[in-house]
Design a protein around this nucleic acid. Structure first.
Length: 498
DNA sequence: CTTAGGG
DNA sequence: CCCTAAG
């Protein structure tokens, strides 16, 4: 395997051109990269990320959690010089030794600019000892290693305008989440289960999952309580084509209503952010005024004739196998050759070439219709059982949270309907997920967001969190983007005046 | 080839 | 997800 994977772990330093914040609470951003043939660092694909995660997970299980993620100070980014090529074996999630290849192209300022030590900047303003009076005194005293993925800064607007909603519960309290919850969140983020019980590790993974994955945009997302906020300068830091500056912060993963656990200290900061976001939002809309794609005039729906062939096919198939679902389980010998995947992973979580495979299956199926009635014995797992005991189809990729976020962001940027654009730009690293998939998912998101409205809260009753639950803030964002305004809050959304 | 809808 | 009809 000539693909080298390494974690470039780096605390996202205060790149001058990106943010003028002098806060030390910048989030820690990890980006999985690999070295391509030319020795350049290129962002790893989702599949690779997954594969590495698996490795790490395995690795992890042999490790004592205590050794993981030492909050040690001296973690400055250093070029490993002639040490050069990091190897997979070197991967140590625990040591977290940031390393970079001596690639001039990647000599981005922000990486080595100001590397503060990894000590969790739990107390942005040390002046305030009331930080984290969240009731989890533990979280406070136990700052050790506590990732405080809480970024509260950057907004220059400091006026104390009051937001419409409470921000107090908006923080991500990954810290206060239990292992189980973290695992759930992990699942939501990565779409798969994890057995790791180490909180630190889980937290880091989750945050990473939400931040990395080769999003080149410098757009940032902040989820504050009920909204997803896009922030960040679009053009900043664009000097490097491969710069990965996902300044993504999630301040709310779970709505921990009831007992608002929040650092009061950050309240002002949050207000600032909200202000900024409001401004953003308006400018955002302004920008989109120009594009008639988003104006109020909804294009008339396309009408279409019923699809004949498909119907015929369906009925035909039904008559043949009387509705029985046929799962082709033929062990295709050419799979491995078919997919020249960068990483050959063991688990079935990597149909890199979904299409090819499906087509191949079809071919096989059509060639010997009868023989395709075998029971699945494939290692690739025809069905996988979820935690709930349900079974899913073979090639169903649950949308992970980060994917959803990306999609929403993409729609925000390029507009709904420009699926191929979004696919190209925002989903470059997701080889699966066709533009059609994006479209479908968006449709579903819309439905979900709408379904949430009427009862206000009724939906939440469904305890079974089947399939990744989409955080309310994202849904409301979806609604926004879809130009569906709940007339409840009579926000004079500057209705166009003909 | 891409998008919109229906299944 | 899959499939097709319209652009």
């Amino acid at each position: 395997m000539d693909t080298v994977v390494d974690f470039v772990g780096s605390e996202k330093a205060n790149a001058e051109d990106c943010t003028t914040s002098n806060m030390s609470a910048d989030p820690i951003v990890y980006q999985l990269v690999r070295v391509d043939g030319n020795g350049r660092l290129v962002p790893a694909t989702e599949d690779e990320v997954m594969a590495v995660e698996d490795l790490l997970e395995i690795d992890k299980s042999n490790d004592t959690p205590d050794t993981l993620f030492e909050p040690c100070g001296s973690n400055k980014v250093q070029f490993e010089g002639s040490e050069g090529q990091p190897k997979l074996e070197d991967l140590e999630i625990g040591a977290e030794k940031p390393s970079m290849l001596p690639d001039p192209e990647m000599d981005c300022g922000e990486i080595d600019a100001q590397h503060e030590d990894r000590t969790p900047s739990l107390v942005p303003n040390a002046s305030d000892s009331s930080v984290c009076q969240s009731g989890s005194a533990e979280g406070c005293s136990k700052l050790s290693g506590g990732l405080y993925e809480n970024k509260t800064s950057k907004s220059a607007i400091g006026t104390g305008l009051n937001p419409d909603f409470s921000l107090l519960n908006g923080e991500v309290h990954l810290d206060s989440l239990g292992v189980k919850e973290l695992q759930d969140t992990f699942k939501a983020t990565f779409g798969r289960e994890t057995s790791v019980k180490d909180k630190q590790w889980l937290k880091r993974r989750i945050i990473m999952g939400l931040t990395n994955s080769c999003d080149f945009s410098t757009t940032s997302f902040v989820i504050i309580d009920n909204r997803v906020v896009k922030k960040g300068k679009e053009e900043a830091c664009k000097s490097m084509d491969s710069s990965v500056l996902v300044d993504c912060v999630v301040t709310s993963l779970r709505e921990s209503h009831g007992s608002p656990p929040t650092c009061h200290d950050n309240q002002n900061e949050n207000h600032s952010i909200v202000d900024g976001m409001k401004a953003q939002s308006s400018t955002f809309q302004d920008n989109y005024e120009s594009e008639d794609a988003n104006t109020n005039q909804r294009p008339t729906k396309r009408v279409r004739k019923p699809t004949k062939r498909y119907i015929e096919e369906l009925s035909e198939g039904e008559s043949q196998d009387s509705g029985a679902k046929v799962v082709s389980s033929v062990k295709h010998p050419s799979y491995d050759q078919l997919s020249g995947e960068p990483i050959t992973s063991s688990e079935g979580c990597k149909p890199y070439t979904e299409k090819k495979r499906i087509q191949l299956e079809k071919e096989v199926k059509s060639k010997n219709m009868e023989s395709s009635y075998k029971t699945s014995s494939d290692d690739d797992v025809a069905t996988i059982t979820t935690a709930n005991g349900g079974i899913r189809r073979k090639h169903h990729r649950p949308w992970t949270l980060s994917e959803v976020v990306k999609l929403v962001e993409g729609v925000a940027k390029y507009g709904a309907g420009r699926w191929s654009e979004i696919k190209r730009l925002a989903f470059a690293s997701y080889s699966y997920r066709t533009s059609v998939d994006l479209k479908d998912k968006w449709r579903n998101l819309l439905r979900a967001s709408l379904a949430e409205l009427p009862t206000g809260n009724g939906m939440q009753n469904s305890r079974k969190q089947v399939s990744v639950p989409i955080p309310a803030p994202i849904l409301s964002r979806v609604r926004e983007l879809a130009d569906i305004h709940s007339h409840n809050d009579s926000h004079n959304r500057s209705v166009h005046v003909t």
